[in-house]
Design a protein around this nucleic acid. Structure first.
Lengths: 342, 342
DNA sequence: GTTCGTGATATGAACGCTCAAACAGTTTTG
DNA sequence: CAAAACTGTTTGAGCGTTCATATCACGAAC
């Protein structure tokens, strides 16, 4: 253990009370229940608070009140070679939404040798946070089961199995992809392919379901191709194979923009022009796709709305004790660009 | 104000003490100074702690000890249209490094109408955190001046003006770009261009300096082109102009991978083949560039080492009260790929 | 004129922990 | 062999809040 330098103490409620010539409680009331003070006292106290730069000590307040005003977000264990490019934007939106309500986001991850559940338990037992925000939810996510069982407040970006209805928010991937397929059908495409990654993301299944539903609805011939993982090389290779097959599809629905990037590369290698020889649509709207030629038709994730919905649901549980009994499905925004063809 | 549901209290040190038949302090010692206990007592107490699932209340501990084991990271105010794609990776690395030492990262941002300094002051006055981690440092960053003046622990990813030596960590962009230019010189390029963005990032100046130094050292003809902002459209347009000029450079040094993406698009539009008609090198190594054809030669940011250095320096200040009097300059890793040509 | 409310402020206790000091027991020391 | 030193443990206090309750002044009601 290293020596710990004692942090110098700041100005306390006692100091303010003395300076203002009133009691501690009056200062506390000035901040937490101003209506209890006589207008004149309030004014004087507020001035002293301002002058001394007093802020209630967060720890003392938490200890007494039992509330921390902190939300934990377990950072997804990201493949460093392939970090989620939307992570920054999502966090930004979450921090903004939480900050609006006076909450802050604490990033956590299990220490080495610790399971995800143990990491959650530690935070609960130490009363470090008021609730959890989860993302990258698996179909049968142990974290959801655990928190749900412990009765601890949380909100999840993504659905688990629908057995026990939790407080989740998700994007309507199914409808989004149906819309994409509709777009292709309207342009006369009959033979379309779905490019999926088998990396195990549950939303990929939804997107696949959307594809199948769309294909059925419009009476198209739909085939599904799967890439083993998220590795760029693999994606390009698999797509080239798909494009050089005997009966080439005239359109591809990529399960995500990341996969679509591979299609651009593969098409160029095969001498096909996207938007002319091959229609391409995808999902996510990564900012980086703005550089693609032709620009990519895709479904934009409403990150801001997702974050707001997650935070608002979580705070409802934390502050009002009301657990929403149903999830919230948010529509993606269809962004039509030239890659889908004329 | 909304009603607040009182959080049910968990198991306290008192409960454990009673169950183990010893005093509070012995439990406290078992966790904070185990060597003080008789081996036998320690074993018994540890068992009871385990059994009851006891974790010291974070707030109570903080209140008494004055230390929070939390580091604040003010999230950069990101352009939502162009979020930093490396943000996720950087945060991941920071969370890992901090977690290793038992610290957690608290994301903060100023509330509406609050200045950055005010937001910092609030956290300091409320004793919510032990220190700050800053990134996206400006040449004359008000946050650095403020924290430095207040004597509050912080570590910065990026340098300010060198007047007062602070605890910073940065990437040696100058040397990195010099290396890139050297690569081009070795391949016989004489006319090279530097593509910069005028969005105001201070590290862009370093990269420019590196370019100028490299060009001087190798006796090349170097020209500098500037894009007004980080908008993809603007980048492509500016690059096309540069490529269609009377005397076209044979090589381009892009100030960042993001800019290089524009060069790929512009080159294709101009019918130039990168790696053959035009050499291209850049800086950052965004994961997304793995899809580019030909693959991009670039300098990889050592995010993990940066995060580790930042955290280790910050903890030195927090725990030992030792403020490093000099910055740390980390080398980038030159990653040579086909875009630079044969 | 005592009682009763009511609004404004004050007081004591408690939240759960760790620090400093005190306390027994045992061993070492001059 | 008494004093000193060490070991392992306990006790009392206090960190800075807020909650519940008490106090006080003052006018309204009977």
């Amino acid at each position: 253990m290293t020596t710990r330098r004692p942090r110098e103490r700041g100005v306390t409620i006692e100091d303010v009370a003395r300076a203002a010539g009133v009691s501690r409680q009056t200062i506390s009331n000035a901040l937490n229940a101003p209506h209890r003070l006589k207008a004149e006292t309030l004014e004087r106290v507020t001035a002293v608070i301002e002058e001394l730069g007093y802020r209630p000590d967060q720890s003392a307040r938490s200890l007494k009140s039992g509330t921390r005003r902190i939300i934990a977000y377990p950072t997804p264990v990201d493949d460093p070679a392939n970090p989620n490019p939307l992570m920054g934007g999502f966090l930004e939106a979450v921090v903004a939404a939480a900050g609006e309500a006076g909450y802050r986001i604490l990033l956590v991850r299990p220490r080495p040798g610790q399971s995800q559940e143990q990491a959650l338990d530690e935070l609960i037992a130490a009363r470090t946070v008021d609730g959890f925000l989860l993302s990258d939810i698996l179909r049968d996510d142990p974290r959801v089961a655990h928190l749900s069982g412990a009765g601890f407040p949380f909100a999840a970006f993504g659905r688990t199995t629908p057995e026990h209805p939790q407080s989740w928010v998700d994007v309507d991937s199914v409808q989004g992809v149906i819309d994409l397929v509709g777009l292709l059908a309207a342009r006369g495409h009959r033979r379309v392919a779905f490019l999926a990654s088998a990396a195990g993301q549950p939303w990929m299944d939804d997107r696949r379901d959307g594809f199948l539903a769309g294909v059925r609805r419009h009476g198209l011939a739909g085939h599904e191709y799967s890439v083993p993982g998220d590795d760029p090389g693999e994606i390009v290779a698999a797509t080239r194979e798909l494009l050089s097959g005997r009966v080439r599809p005239t359109a591809i629905v990529a399960g995500g923009d990341w996969l679509a990037l591979g299609v651009y590369a593969a098409a160029r290698a095969e001498g096909l022009e996207i938007g002319a020889d091959l229609a391409l649509v995808a999902f996510d709207d990564l900012p980086i796709t703005a550089f693609l030629q032709p620009a990519l038709t895709t479904v934009r994730l409403p990150l801001r709305r997702i974050a707001e919905a997650l935070v608002s649901r979580l705070l409802q549980i934390i502050e009002d004790g009301v657990t929403p009994q149903a999830g919230l499905l948010l529509p993606g925004e269809l962004v039509i660009r030239p890659s889908v063809g004329p």
